[in-house]
Write a protein that binds this DNA or RNA. Structure first.
Length: 467
RNA sequence: GACCCCAUCGUCUAGAGGCCUAGGACACCGGCCUUUCACGCCGGCAACACGGGUUCAAAUCCCGUUGGGGUCGCCA
């Protein structure tokens, strides 16, 4: 039987990092087994589902490259089918109408909790005569769950998990308005879509028992379940919306690369020996659920950054230029023409190793593009005292006379100058850096001068030097 | 509270009874390189939650304790 997995987010909020990891694991497992990976939008809660959230999920997954093998399924489109299954269950005596009011239910819940029971609904209408039904109440349809014995889920991650059926009450299949509930919809859709492996968050583990019971009652075979541990915040608490969990687009905006994010997430809870940097194709080859860990993991932005830095450094300059050009233009006001594009491309090799995220890369690239005269920051200002400015003035002519403006020739010229002035290289290199970049931190200063070009370099020098 | 799950350096993890004096990565601390900041390289700090078993031998198996997490909707 060929493998079919699915990622089934509900579009009631953004696509968060835990969801992305669930999607990744499902995607990898399908790819590894030459199976199919499907996307199902669980939008049966019409009040809370939004088009905005659907778009966020779709574009997030697209950005990450987690492509589904078929167009997404919208659960809301299958409502009739779900209801039919419930009606069948009703007709075969495996489900029944329940007329309890919200107040009655609340009372039962209260009672169950104080008596230490998990079985919230008492099964009031399970065996009652339908003749006794109040005419003014629209009933829900409940599943007639087994009262005795136990239900076992052979989880691919957690192992065999058993719960006593006495713990599980009769879940609602159809609401009073006739619409199916999540528990029913998931079961029917998983079956209809041919899902063989349901890889999802650990928070669904208890649902697996009820879903298994439903599958059995209908006479279908449940998929293999794999409940992966949740991702916690750096404080160890649940990564929830309330605790500042972010949508995937926020990570994009923070300057993380999709490949890096995926690599980082993959290593959260899954490992292959000591491997840390793992390409997607390598991951497909190696990934198996057996290697997924059982403990929850905390998100660590330092490590994410470190992985991101690695991917950033490996990204081709042209690609990087495409990624940052817009932001540079926006922040400096420059309009990129052929020569500025050229400048950016030449600047990148020196800039790249100094940045961990796309954001940082933009930050440290800006000085190449600001218009003259440059704003000199306070730290750089310190190396531009009168003496230094005069020295730059004395250096200027020999640079102006350079015919071949290259990193090597600038290097030679400056070193010669250092000899004649009998000073340390730093005495001129730092003022030069301040003049050319407006800061005291930058790539090698000869490289900077070369990338900037002769005209721009001499101009920036002229702005601060004393003749 | 009830039920279920989990437990190796600060963090992510390797580890399937002897290969463990517990390995790697991030972070942190030194050093080298160097005109600055990085990158890179070298080195260091740092963990089997606790208590009982089982065994010739336990981080690895069993039980308990403690700690953490999840679930308990006519939400998904």
């Amino acid at each position: 039987m060929s493998v079919v997995t699915r990622f089934a987010p509900s579009p009631t909020g953004f696509l968060h990092i835990g969801g992305v990891r669930t999607a990744l694991f499902n995607w990898l497992y399908a790819r590894h087994n030459n199976g199919k990976y499907l996307l199902r939008i669980e939008d049966t809660d019409r009040k809370r589902s939004t088009q905005e959230a659907i778009d966020a999920i779709t574009s997030g997954l697209e950005w990450l490259g987690l492509d589904a093998d078929e167009p997404p399924t919208f659960q809301s489109a299958n409502l009739d089918r779900h209801s039919e299954v419930a009606i069948d269950l009703l007709n075969s005596g495996k489900a029944y109408h329940c007329y309890c009011s919200a107040d009655e239910l609340a009372a039962m819940r209260e009672k169950a909790r104080s008596s230490g029971s998990t079985r919230l609904y008492e099964g009031t209408w399970r065996d009652k005569d339908p003749e006794d039904a109040p005419s003014n109440v629209k009933p829900v349809v409940r599943f007639k769950a087994p009262l005795e014995g136990e239900t076992v889920v052979n989880d691919l991650v957690q192992g065999s998990v058993t719960v006593s059926n006495a713990q599980l009450d009769d879940m609602i299949l159809l609401r009073a308005d006739g619409t199916p509930t999540y528990m029913l919809s998931v079961v029917v859709d998983d079956h209809d879509m041919g899902v063989t492996h349901a890889i999802r968050g650990d928070d669904h583990l208890t649902n697996a028992f009820r879903q298994t019971q439903l599958f059995n009652a209908i006479g279908w075979c449940p998929p293999a379940y794999a409940h992966i541990p949740l991702i916690h915040g750096s404080d160890g608490a649940k990564l929830s919306k309330r605790h500042g969990a972010l949508g995937i687009e926020a990570y994009r905006e923070m300057g993380y690369l999709p490949g890096a994010l995926l690599n980082y997430l993959l290593r959260l809870g899954w490992s292959h020996g000591d491997e840390e940097i793992i390409s997607l194709s390598q991951a497909i080859e190696w990934f198996d659920i057996i290697d997924v860990g059982r403990g929850a993991a905390r998100i660590d932005f330092d490590k994410l950054s470190s992985v991101n830095a690695h991917y950033l450094h490996e990204t081709a300059n042209e690609k990087l230029a495409d990624l940052i050009r817009g932001q540079i233009a926006e922040r400096t006001g420059v309009i990129f023409d052929a020569s500025l594009n050229e400048r950016l491309l030449h600047a990148l090799p020196g800039l790249k190793p100094r940045a961990k995220t796309i954001d940082e890369l933009v930050d440290i690239s800006l000085f190449y593009f600001y218009d003259r005269p440059l704003e000199i920051d306070s730290r750089a200002q310190k190396s531009l005292d009168e003496e230094a400015c005069k020295r730059l003035g004395r250096l200027f002519p020999s640079l102006a006379n350079l015919e071949n403006w290259s990193e090597e020739s600038i290097d030679q010229t400056v070193r010669k100058f250092v000899e004649t002035e009998d000073i340390k290289l730093g005495k001129i290199a730092q003022p030069l850096r301040a003049a050319l970049t407006g800061t005291n931190i930058s790539p090698g200063i000869f490289e900077v001068a070369a990338v900037l070009g002769k005209t721009e370099s001499l101009g920036r020098l002229d702005d601060v030097m004393i003749k």
